[in-house]
Design a protein around this nucleic acid. Structure first.
Lengths: 186, 186
DNA sequence: GCGGTGATGTGACTTTTGTCACGCGAAAAT
DNA sequence: ATTTTCGCGTGACAAAAGTCACATCACCGC
């Protein structure tokens, strides 16, 4: 759990008692490769904090093709946020790329948590800003540069991630076909 | 200013005195079509709340081509958020598509504001979540559907906006050439 | 060890989109 | 009122990416 504490304290300082309160709201779970944390069409149980492993957030289009909305590795939060926050059904699925361990936070507990430790609202605000900025920069990247540069930016930004993920998944994340990504090596 | 109060109260209730405090931190400004609220390369003075009019947030790539990151019409907040929040230089510019009136909030005042009226942090959190969700859905839309459907989704989601904006700008927002968008009408 | 599955590269062809060039009509500027 | 600019459509061609089919290699489970 210290991992979570360190993660939060990068943004807001905590007393020991506060962190005890916080940790009481999370539950630990372990999943194996290919298991689903969220299934499309079902309610979203939690917001997940990744302790170890790797997840992919996937949107499947009407032709059945899979598009990767985001990856989540150690110290990342991941969920189908729109569905989680509005308690509606998931439009995406969340699946393990590797065996992974997570801490789970239900929506009701999230609310209690923010009430019990108000600084956490500031923590989540900061995370939301980061997420928004990252998403906006990804939009810009998609609009302005070709695949080659997008792939290079990805390599530069998340070098470790790229090594853990098969290229077919990277292609699904970058928004191009597996073949187009493969052709870059020439 | 009632416009701002109504806007905030859609998310958090306010006392009269609280709103007086809030409004004291904003300053009103008026700009004409083609004027810049943010210039690329300069510091970002404010986060802007649009009272009336229409703005475009633009990223210019190295070839000089303009890409529209987002539009902002009445009751929207807009700024180069990454640069605003970290007090660094803008990578985007913010320009009037029509004559527009805004309320300006400086970063130092934003901080004071959140300290003075703590519920506002919850208001901004909610806005950040909305922004994040919208950005993520735009990413999905770009990855999953062709131009035609993207344009139709835009029409459905912001019918009034589409009428106010020339198609060349819509193309720059959708991430395709003016010609490609024009070809849809056939 | 063996058969299956998944990851990757490659060639041929099609489809989509970008780019450039041009024309036209409406609106704006002088 | 005349000139210029802007918005928009269009045709022709080039470039980029998608699709389909196939081949290879490595790893996994039995």
């Amino acid at each position: 759990m210290n991992q979570l504490r360190d993660h939060i304290e990068r943004i807001v300082p905590l007393e020991d008692t506060e962190f005890e309160t916080i940790s009481s709201f999370f539950s630990y779970k372990k999943y194996k490769k290919h298991q689903f944390l969220i299934q499309e069409g079902e309610l979203v149980p939690c917001n997940f904090f990744v302790l170890k492993g790797l997840l992919k957030l996937v949107y499947s289009d009407d032709t059945g093709k899979e598009h990767i909305v985001s990856f989540a590795q150690e110290d990342w939060w991941e969920t189908d946020f729109a569905a989680f926050y509005t308690e509606s059904r998931a439009t995406m699925s969340l699946e393990c790329v590797e065996d992974t361990e997570v801490l789970c936070l239900r929506l009701t507990d999230y609310r209690k948590l923010c009430a019990a430790v108000p600084q956490l609202e500031h923590f989540f605000l900061e995370k939301a800003y980061q997420g928004f900025i990252a998403a906006q920069q990804r939009i810009i990247s998609t609009m302005t540069v070709g695949i080659k540069e997008r792939y290079e930016q990805l390599l530069k930004k998340y070098p470790t991630l790229v090594q853990r993920v098969p290229k077919s998944l990277l292609a699904a994340y970058l928004g191009v076909s597996r073949e187009a990504l493969s052709r870059l090596s020439r």
